[in-house]
């Protein structure tokens, strides 16, 4: 009977905990959207340029910069991470080198993004003389996100059933052919999910970017070496400077817009992942 009562109490407690967690996250989302969505959908705000200390500035250059940085970073991340993942999942034997690579990937993944910001600033901004620029910011977040994409790609490759490989190899295909024609296509949805999640993460990144890509952009960047302040960093900058009289509205609006973009992308990523799990991995349990 004691056990019964404990069980009933525990059930109630866990319900409360679960609901509290979800409500916290939903509450934050709700407040941000409630405060900012009105501003965020004004065309003059979305498509306008920042006006410094004057009211009525927009965020178009920052939005474009965010996407430029994301695109450019992916352009760097994708080939490196997929090739590395293929190496780790398909070729590497469990030797010293492999273990060392894995240790380095783990280390890279655990470094705080501000450290990447420091590094990017030292090397790309100052040493290479690129200044606050699209390319310095992109390379910095590329480094920052390389390990996560690599890991999710490796996992997707590993979850492709061995039988697929055996079938292809037994038909006389080479190892590389097997990977390209059989393994990679089966792993694509998983890799795609990982990539989408990374897009969301890059869009939300600020600490690694404010001192590599720039704090504010007056116009849409027109070259790799133009400063390209991303939206997330701009939010931080505007609330720190508090220069424009309507800075609060600008932050509210930018935050709502950024949140919508990130949540939509994450939602899409999970949908792909879900679809993939249901289709390809049905009944297949990974060890």
């Amino acid at each position: 009977m004691r056990a019964k009562r404990a069980d009933r109490i525990a059930t109630v407690v866990f319900w409360i905990i679960g609901l509290v967690s979800i409500s916290i996250l939903l509450f934050i989302t709700g407040v941000i959207l409630w405060n900012g969505l009105g501003k965020a959908i004004q065309p003059s705000f979305i498509f306008g340029r920042p006006k410094g200390f004057k009211a009525g500035g927009g965020i178009w250059p920052m939005i474009v910069s965010s996407f430029y940085i994301t695109g450019l970073a992916l352009f760097v991340i994708m080939p490196i991470s997929i090739l590395s993942a293929i190496y780790l999942a398909e070729y590497a034997k469990d030797g010293r080198f492999t273990r060392f690579v894995k240790f380095c990937v783990d280390s890279l993944a655990s470094m705080p993004s501000i450290v990447f910001g420091l590094f990017g600033m030292t090397v790309f901004v100052i040493l290479f003389g690129w200044g606050y620029s699209l390319i310095a910011g992109s390379l910095t977040v590329a480094l920052l996100n390389l390990p996560t994409v690599m890991r999710s790609a490796e996992e997707s490759l590993r979850s492709v059933p061995v039988t697929y490989r055996e079938a292809s190899l037994s038909l006389g295909a080479s190892r590389w052919k097997t990977i390209r024609k059989v393994v990679l296509p089966s792993a694509t949805p998983g890799i795609l999910t990982g990539t989408m999640l990374t897009v969301g993460r890059i869009l939300g990144e600020s600490a690694a970017l404010v001192y590599t890509a720039g704090l504010v952009s007056r116009h849409v960047p027109d070259s790799l070496f133009d400063s390209a302040a991303p939206l997330a960093g701009y939010i931080w900058y505007v609330q720190t400077e508090a220069g424009a009289p309507d800075y609060r509205a600008i932050v509210d609006g930018s935050a709502a817009l950024l949140l919508v973009m990130v949540l939509v992308i994450n939602f899409g990523a999970r949908r792909i992942g879900n679809y993939y799990q249901k289709r390809t991995l049905a009944g297949e349990k990974r060890v």
């Binding site: 941000i32 993460r201 990130v262 939602f267």
Partner: peptide
């Protein structure tokens, strides 16, 4: 899934909140 999606709330936004 909801929690996984909300995990993506950018840190500046939580800071602003």
């Amino acid at each position: 899934r909801g929690i996984e999606i909300l995990a993506g709330i950018p840190s500046v936004i939580i800071g602003w909140f």
